Computed example of a mutant assay.
Amino acid sequence: MSLSVDLNADLGEGVGDDAAMLEVVTSANIACGFHAGTPSELLATCRAAADAGTRVGAQVSYPDKAGFGRRFMEIAPDDLAADVLYQIGALDAMARAAGTALAYVKPHGALYNALVHHEAQADAVINAVAQYDSQLSVMGLPGSEVLRRARRAGLSVITEAFADRAYTADGTLVPRSQPGAVLTDSAQIADRVVTLVRTGTLAAVDATTIGVDAQSVCLHGDTPGAVEHARAVAAALREAGIEVVAPRHQAG
C-alpha cells in the first residue's frame, strides 16, 4: 500500500510567506482574528487557498493578539465555547466568499497545548464545533483530550505531528520557552518527517523513540526558514515515494 500524508501550515497571520507555503501544503490553518489576522488578510488568504486548491481549516485561539495566542488563559467554558463558535463562523463566511468551504478546526498555540489535558476547555471547544457543523473535522495531537472528546461527540478527527518542534518522552511538545524546542535545520526536519510517515515514530529530546500516529504534519509558517523547511520536507517525501494529499474524512 502506498504511503501518503497531509502537510498543513498556519497562515493568514500577517507573518511569513503565505503564497510560498501554499505551493507546498495541502491544508491551510487560517487564523480567525483572535491571535492574528485582520478581516482583509483572512479573506485574501482564503482566496489564495481556494486558487491553490488547498483545503481550509479554522485556526481558533484564545483572545490574545498581544501574545500571539501563546499564553494560557483560564476562561469559563461557556465563554470559550462562544469565542470558538464566533471564530468558526467568521472564517466560514470568508471561505464561502472566496468560493471554498471550511473543512476542519484546529486550535492554535496555548489553546492547542491546553487541550491535550484540560478537560473543561476541550469540552468547550468540541461543543462549539458540534453546534456549528458536525461535519467539520477536529485537528489535534494524538492522545489529546480534545480528540477523545471529538470522537465521543461523533466528529471526525485528524491526528497531527509537528515537523519543526521537539517532543518530550510522553508525546507532548517541548515548551517554546525551553532550548531546542524549535528545530532549525531543514535536512533534519525533512528526515524526521519521512521517518514519521514510514515508521510512525519520532525521536524525543531524551533520545527515546516515541510512537506518533499522524495523518497530517504541521509546517509552521512563521518561523525563520519556514519556506525552506517546507520545500525540503515536500522534496524528501517525493523522493521517498510518499504522496502529499489532504487526509480522507475519518469518522470519530
Rank of each mutant, 00 (worst) to 15 (best):
A236G: 01
A236W: 01
V15F: 13
V25A: 07
A120G: 11
A240T: 01
M1G: 15
P179H: 01
D123A: 13
G180Y: 06
A230G: 02
I158M: 12
A28R: 10
R152C: 15
T172C: 08
G140E: 08
V125F: 03
T26S: 09
A19W: 15
R151Y: 06
S27P: 04
A251C: 03
L115V: 07
C218H: 02
L183H: 09
I210Y: 09
A103I: 10
G225R: 00
V205L: 15
A28D: 11
A49I: 03
A90E: 11
V227K: 06
L22W: 00
A44V: 15
V205E: 14
G171A: 11
S186N: 03
G109H: 06
D164Q: 07
I189C: 06
A50L: 13
R71L: 13
R248V: 07
L147Q: 14
S134M: 12
T26G: 07
F72D: 06
L22A: 00
T184H: 12
L196F: 01
A232C: 11
L155K: 10
G241T: 02
V116Y: 11
N113G: 02
L85H: 06
T184N: 10
A44P: 08
Y167I: 00
V125R: 00
D133R: 12
G140Y: 09
P142K: 05
V24S: 01
A120W: 12
H117Q: 04
E119H: 14
A50T: 13
R71F: 08
G57S: 05
D17W: 00
Y62R: 07
A90D: 08
M21K: 13
A76F: 09
T159G: 09
A203G: 13
A76T: 13
G200R: 02
L141V: 15
E23T: 14
V138G: 06
L237P: 04
A93F: 13
G252S: 07
